[in-house]
Amino acid sequence: MMLNRNWKSVNIFRIASRSIHHKENFRKYPKVNVKDVELEKPRYGFRKERAPLLSEGVTDTLFPSVEIRKKYIENSKPVPIKYRSRSDEIAKRNYEKYKEEVLTGSPHFRVGEKSVYFPKARICLLRPNAKHTPYQAKFLVPRNFNKMDLRDYLWHVYGLRALNVTVQLLHARFERGPDDHARYRGPQYKKMTIDMEEPFIWPELPNDIVKRAKENYDNQLAIIENKNAVGSDKLKPSEAFGGLYDKPQLSDSFIPKRTKRVGEKSLSSLKEKEESQSNNSLLESYLKL
C-alpha cells in the first residue's frame, strides 16, 4: 500500500509495479472530478505568448526594410541580418524604373542583343492547371529556349510583359511499341509559366464544338474499324457519318461455285458472239452489201 501511495516520489517502485498484472483496487485510482476534465482540449494558445516582433509593426509600405531598421535602432536592439542589406532600396529603384517603362511603353528588361527577324520557335499557350492563378500563363516552348528567350519573344511578338518566368522541364516518358523488345525514351517537353500584369482566362469551349468533335472521333473510329475488318466482318454495314459509307444491302441468291465458273464463260462467249453479229450487220448496212 505504501508503495502505491508514494509512487511519484519513489520512482523505483513504480518500475517495480510494472510486473503486477492483476487489476488494481478501484480505491487506489486517482480521484478526479468529471467537471474538471476538459475533453476536447484546444491545440493552440497553450504555448507561451511572445511580444510581437518590432518588424511586425510595419505593415503599410511596399519596401519596409528602411523603416524596420530605424525601429530597431530606436529601441536599441540589434537589427536582424535580413534588414541590414540594401536589397529593398534596389527593389524600390527597380520598381520605379519598371513603372516608368510601363508608362513610356519600353521593354521592362534588358533586351537581348541577337536580332531575330523571323523567329521559328513554336510557342504554344496551354490551358491552366488547377494550381495556376489567372495572372499566370503556361507555354510549351522549344527545348533550347531559356527564360530570357521566352520573355523576349512574348514582348516582341505580342507586347506581353512576362514579369516572372519559371521553367518546367518534363521528364521523357518511356514508350513501348507493340513489337518492341525494349522501352524507349520519348521526347522531353519544356514548359514555362509566366506572371502577367493582367489576368487572362481561357474562354469556355462552345458545347456544340465539343459534341461535334466527340461525334467525329467516334465516327472515324468506327470507319477505321470497318476498313480494317477481317473475315466476315467485311460484310458488316457501318452507320458512321450518317450512313456515308453505308451501301445498300441487296440479297444474294445461292449459286454453286461450278455453275458460276461455267456460266461466266458461256455468257461471255454469248456476248462476244452477239457483239460481232451486230458489228457485222452495221458494217453491211454501211457498205450497202
Binding site: L244, L250, D252, S253, T259, E264, L267
Partner: peptide, 27 residues
C-alpha cells in the same frame, strides 16, 4: 448521304456489281 442521289446511285451500282444473282451466270 441518304438524300444524295449521285452517291446513292453509285453505291447501288457497286452493290449490283457485287450481288450474286442468276442473271450473271445463266443465259
Amino acid at each position: 448521304p441518304a438524300t444524295d442521289k449521285a452517291l446513292q446511285d453509285k453505291y447501288m451500282e457497286e452493290a449490283r456489281a457485287e450481288q450474286i444473282s442468276a442473271e450473271k451466270y445463266i443465259s
